[in-house]
Computed example of a mutant assay.
Amino acid sequence: MRINSNTLINGLNVVLVPYRDYHVPKYHEWMKSEELQKLTASEPLTLDEEYKMQKSWRDDEDKCTFIILDKKVYNEKNNEIESMIGDTNIFIINKDTATAEIEIMIAEESARGKKLGSEAVIAMMFYGIKYIGVRIYQAKISFVNEVSINMFKKLGFLEQSRSEVFQEITLEKSVSADWTESLNRQFNFEIQNY
């Protein structure tokens, strides 16, 4: 989505930057992991296909993605590639109801269990509400990804359905003014030009 092509979201412990072509090689290495493929319900892509996917996420009007950087590492090294820990995405699934699917992946094992994913997904949801106009969020999560299921439930998402065929649960949260303010208070994100 072009709207975030020059946007940086600065949080307490994470920095979100637009997904650019120079991020693709590291992202591609992550997605060779069978564990990540299973947790994200993804198929392995060739490097060329990954570059095309990055371009699609940049150009398509119904997709928005950010690369998640570990802020501490980024501040120390001033290097996005070394600071990359995952990504977070919004995919508009119904423009009439302003419904979007939200996704989060913390690919770097060393960054897991530190609540960096929670902060990143909250930043992304806040961005989606304020700049894209999202009114309903859905998260489709693999049955085996209990960490993500629990994280979204703590954020107020409720189970809507289960698919035995796809082995995933769909959680949903309607946006309200109180919830939006609560998200912002948790981390007080700063939106900057990138």
Rank of each mutant, 00 (worst) to 15 (best):
M1L: 13
I3M: 15
N6T: 07
T7P: 10
L8G: 05
I9W: 08
Y19H: 09
D21C: 09
P25S: 07
K26R: 05
Y27D: 06
E34A: 15
E34G: 14
E35A: 14
L39P: 01
L39Q: 12
T40W: 15
A41Y: 15
A41L: 11
L45A: 05
E49H: 15
E50R: 05
Y51E: 06
W57R: 10
R58Y: 10
D62A: 04
F66M: 07
I67N: 00
D70R: 01
K72L: 12
Y74D: 00
N75V: 00
S83Y: 05
M84Q: 01
G86N: 01
N89A: 13
N89I: 01
F91W: 00
I92K: 01
K95Y: 13
A98C: 11
A100G: 07
I102M: 04
I102A: 06
I104R: 01
I106G: 02
A107Y: 00
E108K: 03
S110F: 10
R112W: 10
G113I: 06
K114G: 06
S118H: 10
E119C: 02
A120R: 00
A120P: 02
Y127E: 07
I129Y: 06
I129H: 12
Y137R: 04
Y137T: 03
A139G: 09
K140S: 13
K140H: 14
F143D: 11
V144T: 11
V147W: 14
N150Q: 07
M151P: 03
L155F: 12
G156Q: 09
G156D: 06
G156V: 04
R162Y: 14
E164M: 11
Q167I: 03
L171I: 06
L171Q: 04
V175F: 12
S176N: 08
A177W: 14
R185C: 10
R185M: 15
R185W: 15
